[in-house]
Design a binder for these strands. Sequence first.
RNA 1: GCCGAAGUGGCGGAAUUGGUAGACGCGCUGGAUUCAAAAUCCAGUUCUGGCAACAGAGUGCGGGUUCGAUUCCCGCCUUCGGUACCA
Length: 954
Amino acid sequence: MDYDARKIEHKWRKYWTKNETYKVNNESSKPKFYVLDMFPYPSGSGLHVGHPLGYIASDIFARYKRLKGYNVLHPMGYDAFGLPAEQYAVQIGVHPEKSTDTNINRYRAQLDNLGFSFDWSREVKTSSPDYYKWTQWIFLQLYKHYYNAKENKAMSIESLVSIFEKNGNADIKANSSQETTFAAEEWNAMSPKEQSDVLMNYRLAYRKVQYVNWCEALGTVLANDEVKDGFSERGGHPVIKKPMLQWSLRTTVYAERLLKGLDKLEWSDALKAQQRNWIGRSEGCRVFFDLEGNEGKIEVFTTRVDTIFGATFMVLAPEHDLVASITTPEQQNEIDKYLEYTQSRSERERIAEVKNVTGAFTGAYAINPFNGDKIPVWISEYVLKDYGTGAIMAVPSDDERDMKFAKHFGIKIVDVVDKTKYPNATLHDKVGVMINSDFVTGMEVPDAIEALTQRVEKMGIGSREVNYKLRDANFSRQRYWGEPFPIKYDQNGIPHPLQEAELPLELPYIEDFKPMADGSSPLTKATDWVNLPDGWTRETDTMPGFAGSSWYFLRYMDAQNDEALASKEAIDYWQDVDLYVGGTEHAVGHLLYSRTWHKFLYDLGYVPTDEPFKKLVNQGMIQGVIEYLYMKKEKTNGKAHFICAKLLKSEGLENNVIAIPIKVSTVQKYGSPDSFINIDSIKKLIEWRPEYKDAIFECSKGIYEDGQFKAKGKATDSHLFTNSEVGKMGKRYHNAVDPDDVVNEYGSDCFRMYEMFLGPVEQSKPWDTKGIDGVFKFIRKFWALFYDENGKYLVEDTTPNKEELKILHTAIKKVNEDIERFSFNTCISAFMVVTRDLAKQQSHKKEILQNLVILIAPFAPHLAEELWHQLGNDGTVQDANYPSPDEQYLKEDSYIYPVQIGKKVRAKVPFSADATREEIAEKVLELKEVQKWLEGATVRKVVVVPKRMINIVI
RNA sequence: GCCGAAGUGGCGGAAUUGGUAGACGCGCUGGAUUCAAAAUCCAGUUCUGGCAACAGAGUGCGGGUUCGAUUCCCGCCUUCGGUACCA
């Protein structure tokens, strides 16, 4: 019998489906284990070979755990709401619901082709009303709760209202944006609108004005990464900042718990560090500065209140509320001009900008509360509205950006910290002795911080404070393809939540997905849906992508439930995710939002754990080659003009071309520095992109135009160099490799093992099929342990010898250990070694091979299932017991020590395994092969590391 | 810019706690088998010099700690990911 991957794989997939081999029960006497993958967004280009990397790893682990006796939950679903489907709809006119379903079907087929052990009866799809009913339900809970800072948990708005009614808000300790205090009588005298506004300042889901990237020409709001230098990436149209009233989640209330929670998680330190930095806790002092001739005050947060005597100017965010009221008539023009400039800047550009210092003077002055100095108030893009208080006291002597700003605008600099005592300290270190600082002069920095903080509190102009870089999450999108908010507004604009029985609030079907001219959501056009009979209106924004993905792992526990997001029994049984596998690109966004929602649900008593993901492994990205062709920005005689990458420099055209990613497969020598396109490639390119059929292709060998190649000199073919890069694999770069193609050729067991063999799961690496033959050969050699080339069954039921058992148990030990530490590439090596060694021994014994079949089952499930049955077993190999290593077969009697003499390995000498350090050190010096290296030298020291090496120091 | 990660033969990578650098695979070279090829099998393969024995160098670059550093420390360089509306 020959190894026929396709036949075997079809056969067993059918068997698994028929026998519901991967269906998981919520009740079991076995211990539970929950293995979760980050679910995919079903894009139009289907899965590429990068996606399955993590799925294969988690599948191996899930199968391994099952073989080790656990009840394993290993589900899959789709993150189905999102921007690409909507953009596709705008461009091509296919409704997102339709394209999403098409894409999901394709994904499912591709996933099925890889032999995963998913329990598909638990599939979730975030865009399905059955699912988003509960996303909306969680939103309503957020809306109906506030954060009680005394109890340190979320509590109901009703309980807050009853306190207001009795005592007002003076004694309430809550994380809120409420700035004024009121008494019970005042609360009771408020109009419904006023009360609603006050409560908005407490709700965990609340509304506030936020800025979006608005592109008038495209008629849409853009993501930051779609904005480059103030213009849209697509089309190059101007983009401005537009204020809009939007929903936010008060995620900052969980900052401290999110930070502390990290300590008990089994996540990589790198990942925890990224989350810690994102949360950005800092201890400091809030200080209010009076303004000269103005009622208002500037509120700043500073970690360096000690440097207040060096604060020679203040900087407000351009969007700061005070800007309009404090700007003097003389400065109005300059400020207006500057605001126009900052409107065009994306937030990322504003933070990243270091070369050019920009800003404008408001004409106003703040007063230093300690010495009464007048401090000019500026605005600049480097201060962000939602970051801290949106205002800083600038201390040029102790902050690089402030220093640059002061130098650029000629603002005076006062040194306040003498660091001569600390020669290695950087600006960021809080060390030094205070100078020029009135009553703190002479103090060490930490003492000065303490002294000034106390003074600020005593004077009533501020207080000690912990600040977080983390910002409240913007929860509104002016998009169609997302969850509708379960909110309606009455005639006074007061929001009202829908009743639970009214959920899900289904997304209405519309045909035109372009937003309105004012930037409001396309849902506004569904007038029948928006306008309710009683004159009320629905919220037209939709929720962002992270809404549905922040809790989906709970839904898998009980995916069909229409009474609750999942039953209490199911949640109590599965508890939390034991192993989560996904990409680092989600290191902060998704993981932080999920943790936040989970903590909220924990406060409300819906989940038993306050962290959702115990252990997390980040898989690396499989990268693709990206090939760019350069096109001149200006057309030649109305034709697109492509030019050789090597001609760019000589002709000085670097800044006058656009790089266009082209289909990698049309490029010769793609991925190398010499990648190029010849006439053949150009023809293929034109076939693929008919809009370039009239284009000009110019290289040093000649010009291709209108199907003709006009050579310069003797050349016979075009040799137009392209630019190769390694980067993301995806539709955008036309470089996606479909796993189906690989599976068709080699089978999915081979594909699974090859992806693992490529290298550590955590590492990113470029895709290359070059080595897959090696894995395929291995599988056939493995098969050859059971059948010879004539199809003769070789397995014999005789007792294995010591050598065979040692070979087997070495592999069992290695594979067990390596799976536990997620090192699957070395597992594959171990399989190759054991197969090679058994083949050498011509060993075909059942006891050995049967263990090997179970050992390989998580990696190559179809192959293992086939051989398991060929060995005469019934039922699935997935219900076998995973073999454990038996140390008695692994013992070595002696060990060959490498002997280092003067940094070089000069000899290899065997010593018995139980020889002591002293014995070895003594004996090794007497050996002939050692002595010849010691002539004329004195032995200073002999280092013996048992079972490792010997080092003779001379 | 800031935060995080990675850098080892021609290539993917191994070396788990500071202890023989290059396991395993690809590719390449030579050989066997074959009319020939494919497939398969065997041997070799870090670089430099040498017929060889052997010698020297070597884990992005520059320093340091150590008997011993791919591994720890300091300073750089390059690439990748994230940077709050891509998912």
